[in-house]
Design a protein around this nucleic acid. Sequence first.
DNA 1: GCCGTTTTCGGCCCGACTGTTTTCAGTCG
Length: 572
Amino acid sequence: MDKHRIALILNQIGMLLELKGESFFKSKAYYDGARTVELLEEDLEILISENRLKEVKGFGEALTSKVTELVATGRLLYYEKLKEEIPGGLLEMMRIPGMGAKKVKAVYDNLGISSVEDLKLACLGNKLAGLHGFGAKSQIKILEGIESLGKYSGQFLFPIAMELASKLVAALKDSGLVIRCSEGGSLRRRKETVKDIDILASSNDSSAVMEYFSRLPLVIGVNSKGDTKTSVTLANGINADLRVVEDTQYPYALHHFTGSKEHNTALRHLAKQEGIKMNEYGLFRGDNEELVICHSEEEIFKVFGMQFIQPELRENNGELEAAREGKLPELVKGEDVQGVFHIHTIYSDGSNTIEELAKACISRGYSYMGVSDHSLSAYYAGGMKKEGIKRQHEEIDRLNLKYSSFKIFKGVELDILQDGNVDYDDEILSLFDFTIASVHSRFNMDEEKLTERVIKALKNKYVTILGHPTGRLLLSREPFVSNLDEIIKAAAEERVVIEINTNPHRLDLDWRFCKPAREAGCRFVLSPDAHSIDELDDMKYGINVARKGWLTAEDIINTRTAADVCKILASK
DNA sequence: GCCGTTTTCGGCCCGACTGTTTTCAGTCG
């Protein structure tokens, strides 16, 4: 059983226990366990077979035996019994904004409501108002919550949220009411999808800022409004929270509201051990709570003897320990990138000519690009036949002469066929400087077969890059089920470069796997999978992923010069 | 349910806002 599924079950156990009315800390143990499993770098089966799962922090007797049962049998009796006790609709009800375990339990215990649909009817029938802790407003809020649950998935792609956040920050800065202002939360941590927009500002007149913010044209509704915190809804359904603090509090608050929650919890725990109380308003030392003055986030980390931790790394994924030991990596930056791979042209389903794309790359400061149109079996995308390849290569040769300081690499995006072969013979494959092998069809194979299929492609001596390794489309298509650990191991052994596809819908490889892949010895390429000139600019989203995945310029081949890239491609 | 130089029991991070309360519980981040 794959670890996402296990994490999901542990999470559900936590929720079910809350619904049962058990101690929250018991639930928290399961929530923490779910997160730990999700971020586990070692193979769960190996941990279990070597009897080392209980050494993992947060895993005691109960969690160890439950996860062991799940991995061994694919089932968990304890979980199944819990599900029998508590109707599934209650879990669904907990997704409604404003409905937590206590409230769901209250309507279930008192009114027997066990589904979102029943809850809706009860609100419309004014049945909730009599319940202790519920009133007329609660019913309206719940109805609105149910509506938004259906209308929006509740998650937004990074670029959409970031664009809105930038507008809000710009408007606040223009207002003259704020001293400092920035986005925070998961946006500042550059997560691939976000639930809401967090903005932090410092000001001498917070209520004026709140007033100004809640009246911005982008705002369609105000959810809550206080002196220091206001929450609004924007036109596309995304919520934006603004927190305002005094300017001296800004660095502490910026750290606090950047999160993640898990990073904050872990750092606060460390602080407490050193006799320091930590909240959004400051660091307070000792019994008399003397303020430890910090002018920046850098200084906050310094108090704990740590290097500055970049926001992207703040996921409680080992960054605190590394920062303390001075072992944080020097993360890759946008300006490190010297060239772009995985570009489609009019030779298949791209909309620009090779020369147009070359000029666009040159104007963006790149010194090379790798063209990779679709191969034969991608008939839906106009995959290239032998004659097309010949024409394309002649054109590239001409352009390479014309633009002497810019290099165009000849490549192709191959389909990994169902049997793991690729769709050109060796004679054709030998014509390319590089090849990207990707799965484009037949995602529904079982895990073992799909893993074998991909690994067989990696072993092909002409395959240099593994394209979008999981096939996921954020918020619309799940990654296909494969054993990524095995694939990563094979990629390292076969010296196949792993793509970080920078299309904001893909961002594949996922940052969560970049760190372990790096440790396994893999190299990466950032590639926009561009089908037009505009999409070349998606590279910045890939930089976010690489940084969140602890990658340095060293780990990424297109931070090298064209000459070095030639050597790397030839080395397979 | 987990954990421990405060250690086998008693904590477990901390604060803002809402809607319901007449001082606070629940939710959220």
